[in-house]
Computed example of a mutant assay.
Amino acid sequence: MAAPKLGDIAKRAGVSIAAASIALNNPDTNRVSATKRAEILRIAEELGYVPNELAKALTERRTRLIGLMVPLKDPIFFNHFIAQVLGGIQATVMQRGYNLLIYSPTGKPGRFTRDQILESRFSDGLIFINTRFCLTRDVAETIRELDRAKINFTMVNSYYGRADVNYVGVDDPALGEAAAQYIAGRGHRHIAFLSGSSDLPTHIHLLKGLRKGLAEAGLELTDRHIGCTGYDQARAYEILDSWFAEKRARPSVVFCGDDQLLMHLYDYVEARGLKIPDDLAVVGRGNIGVISMLRPRPTSFTIPAFEAGKLSAEMLIDSIERPETKKRRVLLPFTFYAGETA
């Protein structure tokens, strides 16, 4: 039996196809009487009518799809931060009556290809989450490509440029400064910073804050105590071994730039038979999901990843539904978690 069409409903209700469409798709309309609209809805239910969403999208010029781009080499659900951001995005998307479409990267780490960005125009808008693979030049080029393609988008995490874009992130210079003040206040004089890459926006701005906070306390973060691992565990071990081999000015505390670096440090301490915080104090920057898994619980400045996801989706959908909405740059507050490691 053929699926019922809009024309079948219109014929039984004694109205035009246009009137039936208005009644089904516009609950607040006054172009069809309340009595007639109730009759049309009843007939549609009796016939088991299912709207053609593609046709509806073409008519409204809207698909009610939100695209998500996350330039990671690994599945996004393996990354605790991304998974929490995604949870927040999904909560808002569902609440606002949209669906989520995830694009898989095929270009180099940190980037999507131009063709993929152009393909994303099928969705009503795009959320782009910067990751540890997104260098400053990658982020800038992504914004240029999205603007060229006239794609409505919101960016999440680690963007410090001047482009007029919807953006949700954390104030990393302020976080770095707060971490430095806490570390200095605990009496530490020799501090190390474990990072991923000196080219990452997060590294640059955390370092700026760390150095400012330490300078205010009369302390210095020396270049030899800034270790960039490239997110390679073996390289992290080499850096940490070199710090522990120092006779003078050996770091008494390490600040870790993100969750993966923190886990590399915990693995190193266990492998070398050391104890936290007896042999080394640790302060991290990450999210509460990772903190809850580690023992001892790391002293950390936590990032509101779920809230960032929710807000990014709200900002994007607001700009879709109200194109005149001004773009916003929102820096969410980080939270200090005392933990047991510093």
Rank of each mutant, 00 (worst) to 15 (best):
Met1Val: 00
Met1Lys: 01
Ala2Ile: 03
Lys5Met: 07
Lys5Leu: 07
Leu6Thr: 09
Asp8Thr: 02
Ala13Met: 02
Val15His: 08
Ser16Asp: 08
Ser16Val: 04
Ala19His: 05
Ala20Pro: 10
Ala23Phe: 10
Asp28Tyr: 09
Thr29Glu: 07
Arg31Val: 04
Thr35Ser: 07
Glu45Asn: 10
Glu46Gly: 03
Gly48Gln: 01
Leu58Gln: 00
Thr59Lys: 14
Thr59Tyr: 15
Thr59Ser: 11
Glu60Phe: 09
Thr63Val: 03
Gly67Ser: 05
Gly67Arg: 06
Leu68Asn: 04
Leu72His: 14
Pro75Val: 07
Pro75Ile: 03
Ile76Asn: 05
Phe77Ile: 15
Phe78Leu: 13
His80Ile: 07
Ile82Ser: 01
Gln84His: 10
Leu86Met: 14
Gly87Val: 08
Gln90Met: 10
Tyr98Ala: 01
Ile102Lys: 09
Tyr103Glu: 12
Ser104Tyr: 04
Ser104Met: 11
Thr106Arg: 06
Thr106Pro: 09
Gly107Ile: 08
Arg111Pro: 07
Thr113Tyr: 12
Asp115Gly: 11
Leu118Glu: 11
Leu118Ser: 12
Leu118Met: 13
Phe122Val: 12
Leu126Ala: 10
Ile127Asn: 12
Phe128Asp: 06
Phe133Arg: 00
Leu135Thr: 13
Thr136Tyr: 12
Val139Tyr: 06
Val139Ser: 11
Glu141Asp: 11
Thr142Gly: 08
Ile143Tyr: 02
Ile143Pro: 09
Leu146Thr: 02
Lys150Ile: 09
Lys150Trp: 04
Ile151Leu: 07
Ile151Phe: 02
Asn152Phe: 01
Phe153Val: 01
Asn157Pro: 00
Asn157Glu: 13
Gly161Asn: 13
Arg162Lys: 14
Asn166Tyr: 06
Tyr167Gly: 08
Gly169Ile: 09
Val170Arg: 10
Val170Asp: 13
Val170Thr: 10
Asp171Leu: 07
Asp172Tyr: 14
Ala174Ser: 09
Ala178Glu: 08
Ala178Val: 00
Gln181Asn: 15
Ala184Met: 01
His190Arg: 15
His190Leu: 04
Ile191Tyr: 01
Ser197Tyr: 07
Ser197Asn: 13
Leu200Glu: 10
Ile204Lys: 13
Leu206Met: 11
Leu210Gln: 11
Leu214Asp: 05
Ala217Thr: 13
Leu219Pro: 04
Glu220Lys: 15
Asp223Ser: 04
Asp223Tyr: 05
Ile226Lys: 00
Ile226Asp: 10
Cys228Val: 02
Thr229Ser: 08
Gly230Ser: 04
Gln233Arg: 13
Ala234Ser: 14
Ala234Asp: 12
Tyr237Gln: 07
Tyr237Ile: 01
Glu238Trp: 02
Glu238Thr: 04
Phe244Met: 08
Phe244Ile: 03
Ala245Asn: 01
Arg248Tyr: 08
Pro251Asn: 05
Gly257Met: 14
Gln260Cys: 03
Leu262Phe: 03
His264Arg: 02
His264Phe: 09
Glu270Asp: 12
Ala271Phe: 05
Gly284Phe: 00
Arg285Gly: 10
Val290Ile: 02
Ile291Thr: 13
Ser292Phe: 03
Met293Ala: 07
Thr302Trp: 02
Pro304Thr: 03
Ala308Glu: 14
Ala308Gln: 14
Ala308Pro: 15
Met315Ser: 01
Leu316Lys: 00
Ile317His: 01
Ile317Val: 04
Ser319Arg: 14
Glu324Ala: 06
Lys327Thr: 08
Arg329Glu: 08
Leu331Asn: 11
Pro333Asn: 12
Pro333Ser: 15
Pro333Ala: 15
Phe334His: 15
Thr335Gly: 12
Thr335Ile: 15
Tyr337Glu: 15
Ala338Thr: 10
